Amino acid sequence: MSKRKDKSSMVKHFEDLYHYAAGPEEMLAQVLTGHLAIEFLMRQLVFMYDQRLASLADELSFARLISLLRDLELVSLQRADVLMQINKLRNRYAHEIGYAPELADLLPIFQDAKSAFTDYSGGLKDGIEEMSSSKGVHSLEYKYHLSELFLAVIYDLHQEYVARGGDEETPTSHSLS
């Protein structure tokens, strides 16, 4: 028997579905935009590594893109693991209608990210502290912890891009769409 919760009961009427689709929760928006920004930077890293791989990278799924970055040694195994956890979180939103993460879904990602990425703002540390003492996601006092997670990842990937010769301000034009 699957451990997945049946969320189909949240859609009792099509109007419920419309509200779900039209009014995404704050966390959903943070996960989707963060995931897209990370994916964009991963493609930029591949382009900086070897422009001939850009078209291949553009065709890869997020998970396969992580594998490529790992194989090319553009990200460490530790960072690749965090990126896979982020992808799993995004996939749960994408494939489980009504998915709402619990602290047990988020806390391990933050803990691993704190070890793998630079916590410039202290947001990962603060998120871990608050989640460790909170009773649930909806009781979190600071609702932008997910943004802090994505900013830490994005910042470090951007720094890697610049270290490999990328312009600090302007991404390569091959994948701006």
Rank of each mutant, 00 (worst) to 15 (best):
residue 77 L to Y: 12
residue 125 K to Q: 15
residue 128 I to A: 09
residue 140 L to I: 02
residue 60 L to T: 06
residue 65 L to K: 09
residue 51 Q to M: 11
residue 35 H to F: 04
residue 147 S to V: 06
residue 4 R to Y: 15
residue 75 V to T: 10
residue 146 L to D: 11
residue 50 D to A: 13
residue 149 L to P: 05
residue 55 S to M: 09
residue 160 E to L: 10
residue 163 A to D: 15
residue 91 N to T: 00
residue 121 S to R: 08
residue 30 Q to W: 04
residue 34 G to R: 05
residue 130 E to G: 08
residue 100 A to D: 13
residue 82 V to W: 12
residue 61 S to Q: 07
residue 173 S to P: 04
residue 16 D to A: 05
residue 113 A to K: 01
residue 39 E to F: 00
residue 30 Q to A: 11
residue 11 V to F: 15
residue 146 L to W: 10
residue 31 V to C: 07
residue 66 I to Y: 09
residue 126 D to F: 01
residue 98 G to M: 06
residue 24 P to S: 07
residue 85 Q to D: 15
residue 42 M to P: 08
residue 84 M to P: 00
residue 176 L to K: 12
residue 87 N to F: 01
residue 115 S to N: 14
residue 171 P to S: 09
residue 75 V to D: 15
residue 57 A to K: 07
residue 103 L to N: 02
residue 125 K to A: 10
residue 66 I to H: 06
residue 133 S to V: 10
residue 164 R to T: 02
residue 13 H to L: 10
residue 58 D to F: 04
residue 157 L to Q: 08
residue 151 L to F: 12
residue 15 E to D: 14
residue 75 V to Y: 01
residue 36 L to M: 10
residue 170 T to D: 13
residue 103 L to G: 03
residue 156 D to C: 07
residue 114 K to E: 14
residue 63 A to Y: 09
residue 126 D to T: 01
residue 26 E to F: 09
residue 134 S to H: 05
residue 4 R to F: 15
residue 23 G to K: 12
residue 1 M to E: 08
residue 106 L to I: 11
residue 15 E to S: 14
residue 118 T to M: 09
residue 22 A to G: 02
residue 173 S to I: 03
residue 117 F to E: 06
residue 73 E to G: 00
residue 30 Q to P: 00
residue 21 A to P: 00
residue 132 S to G: 12
residue 39 E to K: 02
residue 11 V to T: 03
residue 47 F to E: 15
residue 116 A to M: 09
residue 81 D to C: 01
residue 142 Y to G: 03
residue 32 L to Y: 14
residue 162 V to I: 12
residue 48 M to V: 10
residue 106 L to M: 13
residue 29 A to G: 14
residue 77 L to H: 11
residue 84 M to H: 03
residue 171 P to T: 07
residue 110 F to K: 04
residue 172 T to M: 14
residue 116 A to K: 02
residue 175 S to F: 09
residue 93 Y to E: 01
residue 5 K to N: 12
residue 28 L to A: 14
residue 86 I to M: 12
residue 170 T to C: 06
residue 85 Q to F: 02
residue 7 K to I: 03
residue 10 M to T: 11
residue 110 F to R: 06
residue 176 L to S: 11
residue 137 V to S: 06
residue 142 Y to C: 03
residue 24 P to D: 07
residue 45 L to W: 05
residue 78 Q to D: 13
residue 110 F to M: 14
residue 11 V to R: 09
residue 67 S to A: 08
residue 109 I to H: 06
residue 104 A to V: 01
residue 60 L to V: 07
residue 141 E to H: 08
residue 138 H to A: 13
residue 136 G to I: 07
residue 112 D to C: 06
residue 135 K to F: 04
residue 162 V to D: 06
residue 71 D to R: 02
residue 95 H to S: 04
residue 62 F to Y: 15
residue 154 I to F: 13
residue 124 L to K: 08
residue 154 I to R: 11
